[in-house]
Design a protein around this nucleic acid. Structure first.
Length: 861
RNA sequence: GCGGACGUGGCGAAAUGGUAGACGCAGCAGACUUAAAAUCUGCUCUCCGACAGGAGGUGCCGGUUCGAGUCCGGCCGUCCGCACCA
């Protein structure tokens, strides 16, 4: 019995495809294009099976669309800037560039070993100056277009590492590496004006109908549009003792301007400029503000934190009733980053305001009357009333419903010039400055005379210096003895380079455009981009639902505004695949163990290499820290690339998490060998390729042929809809049927040939090496890589006999085999004639009979 | 708190409102073998029954329908995203 030699076969086909350049994409405007892309990986060391699942899906789509005749672009590259390279430099003393290049080499080899149909001629790496010089030019163009700017901003500052931390690097208010409490610091940082596109980014989500609903929802929430009003409160005269502050005012944002008559205080963020100014003269307030800054920003810290306010003693004048005054507080729960950094409190109709009012003894004035309540007796207890109702205690608004009151008060505020209706977004501008070495240098120079000036385009790229040391905390660029000292390109004064580098999300926001013309001297050729873009099918993890996917949508708009292309949405279709999980193992000491170090110890118990008992933990996403990773090398060495690929496609729906099991992949390996034997040792002699199939087949063979064509139709539909696990099941059903071939019937060999060839074509996108080898074994000349996707013959796929279920009161009692499209009356008679049915009906006629042709009969007794 | 997804055998899962559990994993029995592996055949939702056959069954309660895993309402549970957002 022959065994499939995957080593030889897979290497052979990989070589042949490469020699012929089977997957090199040519720009050809006469052909329909299809751009399929998987999120490019960070070169962290080695590929794990989670990566491979993602790329297997992408490769399936690429090969499937190629077979359908599309001109397919399927490129791969490296998201090669990032902190792990610097951590490796600190820990192991290896240069980040060297570390990254070595990882890329390893991972490229692994990808090639998997047989993915990438156009390697377009490979790129973000850390290559030939790549990042283009994003330096983009940054300068963004500056000119006012899409990039510099401002002071409150950031997470790690006092031990001397660097800004991203939100995800702050865990429970502490730096993830140093463990030091993170402080809020006001620093000058570069920002990209993503908020300039808030409306467009939100509205265009509607049109992304090939995106998962939940990703669109997450972006919608992130952008967070709310309608409301900005209202100006004048401060009472003499607000600041010893300082002439008359005429000062505070602008607040509210979504409930209809409750303005219920105002009983104003609250300012501790970072509000007015609060800061007051704090300069008021040590107690300064202490309060400092206290607020020490508070963590984590969820737990916020939940635990008490709502606290500092009464400034200042009063504000109610904008709609100048006779009324409300006290001004500085409060720890008001965010400077949202709205205007100041709010008015209406305790009766906002729970947090109510809690605050109760704590500080402020009045609670109800101004929205719930339906059915008496205005004379309605009062708010411990729960604010936030629902719809009728305005009262509100002068000209009295009697209006909430929505009408909002409109009326908006008009009045605008008429008397104390406010205006606005739309507020939650989205904030994107801070891109990072105090790190291994990133793209921000191409600006700080000149004492000219100010902050862009590096002239002729001087690009600003390359990272190779000779850096990581022996001091902080940014090596800042410590570098020479790199940052330059002459101003405009006035020649001694100046300094910007030493911050760009957030690595900048790199990944346009790589899909670079792939369209990867060797162009400019960032990308407009014609090539407009041919290939948008990406027809993008595939990646849901963890980028907001960050990368939102930034890329912004970039496409920003680049279009700067004249690079004319496009808004980069990704027409998006698929977010599930993670690959594995059980976790711990020894008695609590150390994590690699799965390959855990063995069956008899009696269902698991033991480690020393024979000691092992605790099995829960299924978790594969991660280095818990060691529940499966090495790709061993899998590919043992079973081959095709087996791994089919397993990753077959076991779970692609959007769901998949549990990696050794028994699962063994099952696929058995299937691979079974297919191999069926083709190399066929049960019936196969006629020459292309031989016509006899028309007068036995019923068994006719049924088998029908199944072949049904399978083609079903698999095609499944692949279109990303139901890969079902497609695999259909193909395996066909394999089972072919294995039960009525081998003695005339024409058996011809039907078997059609079945095996179909199977090879359908498996082509999933197990490309085996498919090619089967195809060749069956005597076909051309390659699957260039063969067309099979077409189902509708006439052949059609059933001439159908099984109809017979129910009594909705319960299945019998089945009925009848010719397809038998008339209702005939079906009904046949059902009533069934002995089980006559017995169960006991001679009584059913009250009602429902007949669905070709499907079901339901007798209502 | 707000938003979303999901809940089906021992396990991964199938099922345009129409025969629940396809396909696979694991398990059991058998064939082949000196033996094992590999391979092949059969069985495998639960309960009653020797069989035939019946009864029940898709987290729980109710509804719509001739008919509900699927649609609607309300619970319970799990997971995910956002969140002092005014």
């Amino acid at each position: 019995m022959s065994r499939y030699n995957f080593r030889e076969t897979e290497t052979k086909w990989q070589r042949l495809w490469a020699e012929r350049g089977s997957f090199t994409a040519q720009d050809d405007p006469t052909r329909k294009k299809y751009y399929v892309l998987e999120m490019f990986p960070y070169p962290s060391g080695k590929l794990h099976v989670g990566h491979v699942r993602n790329y297997t899906m992408g490769d399936l789509v690429a090969r499937y669309r190629r077979a359908q005749g599309f001109n397919v672009l399927h490129p791969m590259g490296w998201d090669a800037f990032g902190l792990p390279a610097e951590n490796a430099a600190i820990a192991e003393g290896v240069h980040p560039g060297k570390w990254t290049a070595e990882n890329i080499a390893t991972m490229r080899g692994q990808l090639q070993r998997m047989g993915f149909s990438y156009d390697w001629s377009r490979e790129l790496a973000a850390c290559d100056p030939d790549y990042y010089k283009h994003e330096q030019k983009m940054f300068i163009d963004f500056l000119a277009a006012d899409l990039a700017y510099r401002r002071e901003s409150w950031v997470n500052w790690d006092p031990v590492e001397h660097t800004v931390l991203a939100n995800e690097q702050v865990i429970d208010g502490h730096g993830w590496r140093s463990g030091a409490p993170v402080e809020k610091r006001l620093l000058s940082q570069w920002f990209l004006r993503i908020t300039a596109f808030s409306d467009s980014l939100l509205e265009s989500l509607q049109g992304l109908d090939r995106w998962p609903e939940r990703v669109r929802l997450m972006q919608e929430n992130w952008i967070g549009r709310s309608e409301g009003a900005r209202v100006t409160f004048e401060l009472a005269a003499g607000a600041l003792a010893g300082d002439d502050q008359t005429g000062d005012s505070i602008e607040i944002f509210t979504t409930r301007p209809d409750t303005l008559y219920g105002a009983s205080f104003l609250a300012l963020s501790p970072h509000h400029p007015f609060a800061q100014r007051l704090a300069e003269k008021n040590p107690a307030l300064a202490e309060f503000v400092a206290d607020c800054d020490r508070l963590g920003t984590s969820e737990a810290a916020i939940e635990a934190a008490e709502k606290r306010g500092y009464a400034t003693g200042i009063e504000a004048i109610h904008p709609l009733d100048p006779s009324r005054r409300v006290p001004v507080y500085v409060a720890n729960f008001v965010l400077m980053e949202y709205g205007t950094g100041a709010i008015f409190g209406c305790p009766a109709h906002d729970q947090r305001d109510l809690d605050f009012a109760r704590k500080y003894g402020l009045p609670v004035i109800p101004v929205v009357l719930p339906p059915g309540e008496d205005p004379a007796s309605f009062a708010v207890g411990d729960t604010a009333y936030v629902d719809d109702g009728t305005a009262f205690n509100s002068d000209f608004l009295d009697g209006l419903a909430v929505a009408d009151a909002k409109r009326a008060v908006g008009e009045r505020l605008e008429a008397i010039g104390v406010g205006r209706r606005t739309i507020q977004f939650r989205l904030r501008d994107w801070g891109v400055s990072r105090q790190r070495y291994w990133g793209c240098p921000i191409p600006v120079i700080h000149c004492p005379d000219c100010g902050i000036v862009p590096v002239p385009e002729d001087d690009l790229p600003v390359e990272l210096p190779a000779d850096v040391s990581f022996d001091k905390p902080g940014n090596p660029l800042d410590h570098h003895p020479t790199w940052k000292y330059v002459a101003c390109p405009y006035c020649n004064s001694p100046s300094q380079r910007e030493t911050d580098t760009l957030d690595t999300f900048f790199d990944s926001s346009w790589y899909f455009l670079r792939f369209c013309s990867a060797h162009a001297p400019i960032a990308f050729g407009r014609k090539a981009a407009e041919y290939w873009m948008p990406v027809d099918q993008y595939i990646g993890g849901v963890e980028h639902a907001v960050l990368h996917l939102l930034y890329s949508r912004f970039f496409t708009r920003a680049l279009s505004k700067c004249g690079y292309l004319g496009l808004e949405e980069p990704f027409a279709g998006l698929f977010t695949q599930g993670m690959v999980c594995h059980a976790t193992y711990q020894n008695q000491a609590g150390d994590w163990l690699f799965p390959e170090d855990v063995n069956e110890g008899g009696g269902g118990k698991l033991v480690d290499s020393a024979g000691a008992a092992v605790t099995v933990g829960r299924l978790e996403k594969m991660s280095k820290s818990k060691k529940n990773v499966v090495g790709l090398e061993r899998i590919v060495e043992t079973y081959g690339a095709d087996t791994a690929r089919l397993y990753l496609l077959s076991d779970s729906p692609p959007e769901r998490d998949l549990e990696w099991t050794e028994t699962g992949i063994e099952g696929i390996w058995r299937y691979v060998n079974r297919l191999w034997r069926m083709a190399t040792e066929p049960e019936a002699a196969l006629p020459a390729p292309g031989t016509a199939i006899p028309a007068d087949l036995s019923p068994g063979l006719a049924g088998l042929r029908r199944q072949i064509h049904k399978t083609i139709a079903a698999v095609t539909d499944d692949l279109d809809k990303f139901r890969f696990n079902r497609a695999v099941a259909r193909i395996r059903e066909l394999t089972n049927a072919l294995d039960d071939l009525p081998a003695g019937d005339p024409g058996a060999g011809a039907v078997l040939r059609e079945g095996l060839e179909t199977t090879a074509l359908l498996l082509g996108p999933m197990m490309p090496h085996l498919a090619e080898e089967l195809w060749q074994t069956l005597g076909r000349g051309e390659w699957i890589a260039t063969a067309s996707w099979p077409a189902a013959d509708a006439a052949l796929a059609r059933d001439d006999q159908v099984t109809i279920a017979v129910q009594i009161n909705g319960k299945l009692r019998a089945t009925l085999d009848l010719p397809r499209d038998t008339e209702k009356g005939a079906i009904e008679r046949a059902a009533l004639d069934l002995p089980q049915i006559t017995r169960l009906l006991e001679g009584k006629a059913p009250k009602k009979i429902v007949v669905v042709p070709n499907r079901i009969v339901n007798l209502v007794a």
